[in-house]
């Protein structure tokens, strides 16, 4: 049974695209077939983060409008055979995405892949609502910072009202992915703690991705951090999060690059 997952946040710059690429690669590395889909029409970046920017011939809009077949637009990752990318259009307007067209493409993707991961644009406009529309589950990417938490709360409300699942009265699973977390600053009271954010947003925790230089290095190279540097702290957080998405119960930790005691001290189970 294919799963459609939307990676969303409301606020920009919190790590949606990084997380889409890292989770997609992590799932693919464990043998699942995965397609990551960029819904950020006009400002596409998933291709760049995945290192496929020079291989984009057709994009999501071409497929939605019937100008290209899905198989022509899918870009197979060179490092990981189970991973494919469907890029967004850089030149067209988001209005070119018709609701019916997106529904048809998602259905077609469901037949080919185990996981379809939709990278949502920031905001709550059409692009964001279309990205979440057909999702079975959502990963809400949040930074431990007031504006990001507020926007996540808004997005959770939309997930519970504007998705197909919500409209059919079915359950919409939502998970919190806390990114750019700095356990030392949180401990000093300079940053919202994991429990603060969990209490405010009250959705189960999927993982805690610590602030790390490895993320920027990976995007510089055009590779998901889980492939570029799988031993780094953020990669380990994403690899564990991917296991949890597959229903495997892994205790939640805050991985660190320095391999200190922190990871062990912050042990916690998924809600």
């Amino acid at each position: 049974m294919a799963k459609v997952l939307v990676v969303t946040s409301g606020k920009g710059g919190v790590g949606k695209t990084t997380s889409t690429a890292a989770l997609g690669a992590a799932l693919a590395l464990s043998g699942q077939t995965v397609c990551v889909v960029d819904f950020d029409v006009g400002l596409r970046n998933l291709d760049l983060v995945m290192g496929a920017e020079r291989r984009v011939v057709f994009d999501l809009i071409n497929v939605v409008q019937g100008d290209a077949k899905l198989s022509q637009a899918l870009i197979r990752d060179k490092r990981c055979e189970h991973l494919s990318l469907l890029a967004a259009s850089q030149t067209r307007d988001k209005d070119a995405l018709s609701s019916e067209g997106v529904a048809r493409v998602i259905e077609e993707l469901r037949e080919k892949f185990d996981w379809i991961i939709c990278d949502s644009p920031a905001g709550i406009e059409r692009g964001a609502t279309l990205a979440m529309r057909h999702a079975d589950m959502a990963v809400v990417v949040t930074n431990p910072e007031v504006s990001s938490v507020r926007d996540s709360d808004r997005i959770i409300g939309l997930l519970d009202s504007k998705t197909m699942r919500a409209e059919r009265g079915e359950r919409m699973d939502k998970f919190l992915l806390l990114t750019r977390y700095d356990p030392a600053r949180a401990e000093r009271g300079e940053m919202l703690k994991v429990d603060d954010v969990l209490e405010i947003l009250s959705i189960p925790l999927l993982g805690i991705v610590p602030e790390s230089q490895a993320v920027l290095s990976a995007s510089n190279l055009g590779s998901p951090v889980t492939i570029a540097n799988p031993d780094s702290a953020p990669a380990r957080a994403y690899l564990d999060a991917a296991l949890r998405l597959m229903g495997i119960d892994v205790p939640i930790t805050v991985p660190t690059d320095k391999r200190s005691l922190f990871g062990a001290l912050f042990g916690r189970r998924v809600a």
Binding site: E145, V146, V149, R150, D153, R154, G157, A186, R188, G189, E190, M191, L192, K193, D196, I200
Partner: peptide, 25 residues
């Protein structure tokens, strides 16, 4: 003052969101 910034963020968010949830819901 620096030490108390995170609790303040938490409190401000809780008040704001309880209002926003009521008004958008």
């Amino acid at each position: 003052a620096r030490r108390t910034s995170a609790p303040q963020a938490r409190e401000r968010l809780q008040i704001l969101l309880s209002h926003e949830r009521a008004s958008t819901g």
